[in-house]
Write a protein that binds this DNA or RNA. Structure first.
Lengths: 204, 204
DNA sequence: GGTGCATGTGAACACCATCCACATTGGTGT
DNA sequence: ACACCAATGTGGATGGTGTTCACATGCACC
């Protein structure tokens, strides 16, 4: 708070900007992030940010990466629930948890959810390595496990990740930005479970 | 073009602003729309826009409505393809067309697609009348037809619209803003068909 | 102990949304 | 025919934004 004795160099400004950025965007998404505000909060001049990020969207991208790892955490919390014995059933349960965890995150952190894939388009080239996007990798692993356990025929495996991701991501959008925004939690939960169950039936 | 003889009043400024707005946002979405630029193009002062729209986001909402009707047109183009005799099969074919038409629109007009549901959140209240969002109404009608034709058990009907919309909208996002951005048209088409077919299997 | 290089500063530019008092006009009522 | 009113458009001001530039500072390394 005391402005007088602040050292000229911040120490770890990059991390500070990310931290303030997370706070700023938590409830209202990317639109709530201004480079001037974030530097103001870090107690630093606006131009200082440019020593660490090429421009505003580069900061958004860094925030997106950070958020992706939190999405994965939320997925893992879901899949870590007590399991069942049968391997096929267990792998399907995990797949379900991956989807529901994703939707949980979107509901709990709508602002962050909006930013999670901000940087994804920056990965140049036609087919960026999907496995390098952590939440996507989680889905791929769950699907592979379904094949290994016999729950999903190997012939049906190729392309299944797109169906799953589409349904789950679309559902999250429906709830966070779409017509279901502000709907009763009970209804939301019901819809989420229906969507996830339907797509799992569909890909098999 | 000649600026000298322009009348003080524009005539139909509202429509002109919408038209210019559509052009501005066609390829790059809502971010490409500035009130100043749109009024500049209409040959009018920036403040004039406020006689017709409360603020920038009100104009975006109006553009969204216009775009929604174009989405419906694209869906109809798909469903108007030559049909088959069996009513159940025919109703499923229409449902498929609704989904694929939606995805087609997103691929062909990515900027507009991003704006289509801008105003949707403005419909205050918990459950806005989904049927009043034209593309959504199209989906509801197709699903009802599936029930009537016996292709979809009546017991499975409630909630099916959410599964369908989630999968299709999510797929469009995947293609337009997600990891599939810039992918080869062949792959895109393949993915779209797989997603739509999977969710149709899943809801039954 | 000096020096180079990463980091932070301040001021500037161009752009934006929005609001205000004021100007202009087309239509309405007499 | 005329006066007036409500709708519409203007110009300018305010306060915000991203981004760039020459310049200042100080840490780490030779």
């Amino acid at each position: 708070m005391s402005e007088g004795n602040r050292p000229y160099h911040h120490g770890d400004l990059r991390a500070a900007l990310v931290a303030e950025g997370l706070e700023l965007t938590r409830s209202d998404g990317p639109g709530a992030l201004s480079l001037r505000e974030v530097t103001r909060r870090a107690g630093v001049s606006p131009a200082a940010a440019y020593r660490h990020f090429r421009d505003r969207s580069a900061l958004l991208g860094a925030l997106g990466l950070e958020i992706q790892s939190r999405v994965v955490e939320r997925m893992r919390a879901r899949t870590a629930e007590p399991g069942v014995a049968d391997p096929a059933e267990e792998s399907l349960r995990r797949l379900r948890g991956v989807g529901l965890g994703y939707i949980d995150f979107a509901c709990e952190e709508p602002g962050w959810f909006e930013m999670a894939f901000f940087g994804i388009a920056d990965v140049e080239g036609i087919g960026p390595d999907l496995a390098r996007v952590p939440p996507f990798a989680e889905l791929l692993a769950a699907l592979d496990e379904c094949v290994a356990s016999g729950a999903l025929p190997a012939l049906r495996r190729p392309g299944a990740e797109f169906s799953c991701w589409s349904a789950v991501h679309g559902c999250a959008e429906l709830i966070v930005h779409g017509p279901l925004r502000g709907a009763a939690p009970g209804l939301v939960r019901e819809v989420a479970e229906r969507v996830v169950d339907d797509i799992i039936v569909g890909i098999r």
